[in-house]
Design a protein around this nucleic acid. Structure first.
Lengths: 219, 219
DNA sequence: AATTATTTTTAGATTTGTCTAAAAATAAAT
DNA sequence: ATTTATTTTTAGACAAATCTAAAAATAATT
């Protein structure tokens, strides 16, 4: 089945909202998609007719099996493109979202599978979010906060809590980005700062505040 | 200025038709775009209002300066994506057109420039068509006569001197058309005939006379 | 429980791009 | 030079996606 760009954007919007709240309501989806509640109601009827969600009027809605599957496929496309834009074209991670929002609607299945192979089947996108596989399954990655990690273990940076330009600037200075492998060598009790080591770079010290914003998983 | 997918497709269609005939007429554009003449007339008014073409009703139309520039930018995007799909993702050249038709409308200027750098600024796409540069200028490709070309080099057929039905019939028989990649393997001194090889086809021999009517450029 | 406030839906309009069918202009043929 | 044929344009309708303004349903408050 083929879906319009607009329909796909609604599905994605609903998916993101229901991840947090379970049931979604008209106003919050209108806000999420920068549109009006009346437009949301109109589209909900269409999506219900296409059997993508459960919807009883005046009582909220949520994606069903089909809707969830579709959402995950759209998200797969989005995150694979983001990965491509950062790793291959050299974009910084804070610039890729709007471009991936356009690319994600290019619908060729063969394109996405070949892109996936070309990128060597990544599982985490440049923002640290997991990339669903061909079947729409999310990889199980347990993210752990860097602050409180076991010493001397190699971990991989998977996401960053604070994605402000200031934080980005700081991480750039330290040479830390999504996918960076590092080891915590020591924690200073005095102020909670940590000495970390990235291969081929001199060791450095990051503050407790920075560490608490970095999430990792074991290699 | 921002243009819709539909507007861009019309501009591209007009560009392709006027390359052959100079002035374009309503019916042929409708045929080219698989739409109806009435729809073409409607769109022509819009494109005239946007100052992309010269149009006097009942008397045909053609792109002006702005329209030509836009067309070349769209074609640049299309051909860069085709190059990417073939050279990086491993598509065969006969499968990429419809996908590039979608990708070409993703409008980020920065995306196209970074893609261009990533691909190392190619000048010829997988079909043998030239790729316009950042400013919309078509690269000057030096056409060389097939007769007297270096042996064993891959060349691309760019034009044919004699366009008589007899010649076209003959080229069709050999499987040679614009964009065909071939290699000259041997020249027979006796009569100047050449043994050529087109990929996925058995080698064949063409006369000196035919060879002198075929123009190519290096791959 | 009745009133007030909020949320959601309907009704009707708008924009973009398309269509069919009929009218108008141009081109071709006798 | 008329008639006939073709091409192009208009007029009016339609589908998708949106909007505003008003009505209906639900939730919150006294």
């Amino acid at each position: 089945m083929k879906f319009s760009v607009s329909e796909e954007n609604y599905i994605k919007g609903i998916y993101h909202l229901q991840a947090e709240t379970g049931m979604v309501n008209t106003n919050s989806l209108a806000r999420e998609l920068s549109t009006k509640p009346a437009s949301v109601t109109d589209m909900l009827k269409k999506l219900k007719a296409k059997k993508l969600l459960n919807y009883e009027k005046y009582h909220g809605f949520k994606l069903n099996e089909n809707g969830n599957k579709l959402a995950l496929h759209i998200i797969r496309r989005h995150r694979l493109w983001e990965y491509f834009l950062v790793k291959k074209l050299g974009f910084t991670w804070d610039k890729v979202h709007p471009i991936a929002d356009e690319l994600e609607h290019v619908s060729s299945k063969e394109l996405i599978e070949k892109l996936d192979v070309f990128l060597e089947t990544p599982t985490i996108d440049p923002h640290g979010d997991p990339i669903p596989d061909t079947n729409g399954k999310l990889p199980a990655i347990k993210q752990i906060n860097l602050y409180g990690i076991a010493l001397k273990k190699v971990v991989i940076v998977s996401s960053v809590g604070n994605q402000s330009p200031q934080m980005l600037d700081m991480l750039k200075h330290y040479g830390i980005s999504i996918g960076t492998k590092l080891t915590v060598n020591k924690v200073f009790d005095f102020d909670g700062s940590m000495q970390i080591k990235i291969s081929k770079m001199p060791g450095c010290i990051i503050s407790e505040q920075v560490a608490k914003n970095i999430f990792v998983y074991y290699d």
